[in-house]
Design a protein around this nucleic acid. Structure first.
Lengths: 229, 229
DNA sequence: GCCGCTATGTGAAGTGCTTCACAGTAGGCA
DNA sequence: TGCCTACTGTGAAGCACTTCACATAGCGGC
């Protein structure tokens, strides 16, 4: 199994597939590089490809009528960008921007759907994964309705730490997990201002739950954060 | 085509299926009745059936740690309750309560998955539909991040009017559409208090866009509402 | 080593929504 | 018929978060 195949095995959208299916898909892709800041695709574009991040990271961004931006997701190696467009044929609902120098495996719509029709079992795995995704989004939605910024922030920090752990080793969440993100970024993920996020982070820091430094947040006491959230 | 089959043709989850697939699924179901207020299933229950509303309506409700409730969805005839659990095997993420006297077609997990394995094309249709659903939820999420109550409320009123239209005749959205819901219900859908919703509705009414009465909202000028939202 | 950019930290004023408190009203039902 | 309950309408006080304004600090490039 080569680099590409190993990679695909780990991506959430496809993780549940049998190995030969994965191999077949990997063989169809083409690797491309993106410099930091490159726009991979923009909101409204026709969605004709799937991108699987190999290295680096990709920000998924939506923008409001007034030009504000919200970061919907930050995807790292092994994760999947632009999968929905391949399944339903709709235009992109968000833009994707390389957050650092990144490489991705690009699979076109034709390649993907040829692959999918040849492997009916893959469709079941995808159904399962998509439905898990609906659940997660629904949960985020109710969090918005019920929780204040402090609690949403705590949850998000744990999520981000977990996502990083998934990509690297997959042990339990150890104290000391370091999340690389700016406070402005966190704000845009949480639908809050940078200033509010800063004040809240400093409260957590005063509790001794996290440590702050330029460009990153370190979880000192994930357990405490979890009970709080 | 009998009542059951006609019904299934119109449900969002299954609408894109070929007719014989629909017929096959309909034949497997069993019709059940629920008195107003009956709990059909509860958050945390194992999810072993799919419910397709035949008549009446069903509220999908999640509750927070503090016991507050939010109405995630209000599903009418032709809509699908508890579909996710069948696809991913997870427990119910929300409760379903009959909002009035209702009847539903119940399909068990075994029946559903036997049906699905026999019909590979159905899986593609479901993938497409589910991915549309992810998009809608994502949109709701960004609305929460960007929009204030007034705009979210305007959008929701239009959505509700559209959903009703889908179920009845499927023409354009005519002025005069009447939405049956209390203001408390609207609040719980929007993550806002009843009082705020009331004040906002009255602002819309003063503009002449809607008319209020006990237990319902009537859209007088959907176009104006749309440009506002 | 210094300049300039970007990120962080923090206070003051403003705003949108909540909660509370209460008054009015429509409709179901005894 | 009249009562009771659920829904609607509204003002006042409070709170969470925003916006604005500015100070400070790390870091890369020259």
């Amino acid at each position: 199994m080569n680099e590409r195949e190993e990679l695909i095995r780990d991506i959430p959208l496809l993780a549940r597939l049998p190995e030969d299916d994965v191999r077949a898909l990997a063989s169809r892709g083409r690797v491309r590089s993106y410099a930091s800041g490159t726009v991979i695709f923009q909101e409204g574009d026709p969605g004709d490809s799937l991108y699987i991040v190999i290295e680096g990271s990709v920000r998924i961004v939506v923008s409001s009528a007034k030009g504000e931006e919200a970061t919907v997701a930050l995807l790292g190696p092994g994760e999947c960008v632009g999968d929905l467009a391949l399944l339903d044929g709709r235009p992109r609902s968000a833009s994707a921007i390389a957050a650092e120098h990144s490489r991705a495996l690009v699979v076109t719509r034709e390649e993907f759907s040829r692959w999918l029709t040849q492997r009916p079992k893959a469709a079941f795995a995808l159904l399962e994964t998509l439905s898990l995704r609906v659940r997660r989004t629904d949960e985020a939605l109710t969090d918005f309705a019920f929780l204040d910024l402090a609690h949403r922030l705590a949850k998000r920090l744990l999520d981000l730490a977990n996502a990083q752990r998934d990509v690297q080793a997959r042990g339990a969440l150890a104290p000391g997990a370091r999340i690389r993100t700016t406070q402005a970024e966190l704000g845009s993920m949480l639908g809050a201002s940078r200033e509010s996020v800063n004040k809240q982070l400093n409260m957590f820091a005063r509790e001794g739950w996290i440590a702050l430094s330029r460009g990153s947040v370190t979880l000192l006491d994930p357990e405490a954060l979890r009970t709080f959230a």
